[in-house]
Simulated scan of single mutants.
Amino acid sequence: MGAMIMALVVRYGLVMLFMPFSALDKIFNFEGALKQCGQIFKPKALAAIILLCGLGIEVFCTIGVVTGVADRACALILAGYCAATAVLYKQFWAQGDFWANPDGKGRTLFWDFLKNLSLGAGFLLIVVGTDGQGLAPFLAHPLASSHPYGVHP
Rank of each mutant, 00 (worst) to 15 (best):
G2M: 11
M4C: 14
R11G: 01
L17C: 10
L17F: 14
P20G: 02
A23W: 03
A23C: 05
L24S: 12
K26W: 10
N29W: 08
A33E: 06
L34S: 01
L34F: 04
K35C: 08
C37I: 11
I40A: 05
A45N: 08
A45L: 14
A47R: 10
A48I: 12
I49E: 01
I49F: 13
C53S: 11
C53Y: 10
G54A: 12
I57F: 15
I57K: 09
V59Y: 06
F60T: 07
C61D: 05
I63E: 01
V66T: 05
A70L: 09
D71W: 00
R72C: 04
A73D: 03
A75T: 05
I77P: 00
L78D: 00
Y81G: 00
C82E: 01
A83K: 00
A86N: 05
A94M: 13
Q95K: 15
Q95R: 15
P102T: 11
D103N: 13
K105W: 04
K105S: 09
T108N: 05
L109Y: 02
W111V: 13
I126Q: 08
V127H: 07
V128C: 12
T130P: 03
T130C: 14
G132W: 15
A136V: 13
P137Y: 12
F138P: 13
A144K: 06
A144Q: 04
S145P: 11
H147S: 08
H147C: 09
G150P: 08
G150F: 12
H152K: 15
